[in-house]
């Protein structure tokens, strides 16, 4: 596409690879464990998606079970809860992206403006401590704060909320889920931006100062463009996992009272697949999930390339 003389180029590329292999034998050798890991743990298990198209029976095995085609998919699409779990998954992911993605960036930018090193380090350390707390503990704390008479419930009531305990109200579920996520992951997610910020050439700032740019203008024209490619790559990575809301936290947090907004595809799969050992059906649901996920990722990548010129592939 880019060059004329296609065949000549091809030939030389093969030669380049060959030469490269000869030169970097040791590096290629070091790469083998990674390759083996991905083949064994990521590619071979992919054969398991075959289960989604058959009536899987442990005794008969993957290749001996009866084929049923798309029956499991149709069953899921016709299920009472299909629309609801799909909607909840998308909404939680979307809001999560919308609110929890910018926070670490803003936080990193703020930290970047702090001049006293000791204070900066202290804030950074404190902010990423919650990351090391088990999600089980985070959820128990959340329950304590949001049951009737809990701190957050009282605060909301003071502002005119009349529905009692926040944790048992479907209206609050997403807010609490995403809010606690932000609290827990803020400092940790900011690390990568902070390191990207430190990579910006200080001379640029000096030059800007001479040109008469204030702090705000410096942020706008030097800092942000400086970390733009990092932001785009991370955004695309986040898009890739848009459908995979972590089921652990959902399962810990949801109750029948909040199923309406809390039940997502992965928690549904957990109930159907693990608790009832209905492997084929849950594989089908998960496969559907992955396909949607893949489409979102591809679209995001394309958009990212168009907007900023950098993408994953």
């Amino acid at each position: 596409m880019k060059r004329a003389g296609d065949s000549a180029y091809k030939k030389s590329r093969a030669e380049i690879i060959k030469a490269d292999f000869k030169r970097n034998k040791v590096l290629y050798f070091l790469f083998i464990p990674v390759l083996v890991y991905f083949i064994i743990f990521h590619y071979i298990p992919m054969a398991g998606v075959f289960m989604a198209f058959e009536d899987y029976n442990i005794k008969k095995g993957l290749f001996g079970s009866d084929l049923v085609g798309f029956a499991h998919f149709l069953k899921f699409f016709r299920s009472q809860y299909f629309i609801r779990v799909l909607r909840n998954t998308l909404l939680i992911s979307f809001y999560g992206l919308l609110f929890s993605f910018p926070f670490p960036i803003i936080f990193a930018l703020c930290l970047n403006e702090v001049r006293r090193k000791g204070f900066k380090k202290a804030v950074q350390t404190i902010s990423y401590l919650p990351y090391f707390i088990s999600v089980v503990v985070v959820v128990s704390i959340l329950f304590d704060f949001t049951k009737s008479g809990g701190v957050l419930t009282n605060a909301a009531t003071a502002f005119g909320w009349k529905g009692g305990a926040l944790i048992s109200s479907p209206k609050w579920f997403r807010t609490l889920f995403i809010g606690s996520n932000i609290w827990q992951h803020l400092g940790y997610s900011a690390i990568i931006y902070i390191s990207a910020l430190s990579g910006i050439d200080p001379e640029l700032y000096d030059a800007a100062k001479i040109d008469g740019a204030g702090r705000w203008k410096q942020t706008l024209y030097i800092t942000l463009p400086g970390i733009a490619s990092t932001i785009v790559v991370l955004l695309i990575l986040r898009m890739g996992s848009i459908m995979s809301v972590g089921y652990e936290k959902i399962i810990l947090m949801y109750k029948p009272a909040t199923y309406e907004t809390a039940d997502v595809i992965s928690s549904y799969v957990y109930r159907v697949g693990l608790i009832q050992a209905n492997y084929s059906y849950s594989t089908a649901i998960n496969l559907f999930n992955s396909v949607v996920n893949f489409i979102v990722l591809a679209v995001a990548n394309k958009l990212g390339k168009k907007i900023s010129g950098s993408g994953l592939w």
Partner: peptide, 8 residues
């Protein structure tokens, strides 16, 4: 119990 729905 006002919190029955949230009991662990």
């Amino acid at each position: 119990d006002q919190d029955f729905a949230t009991r662990q």
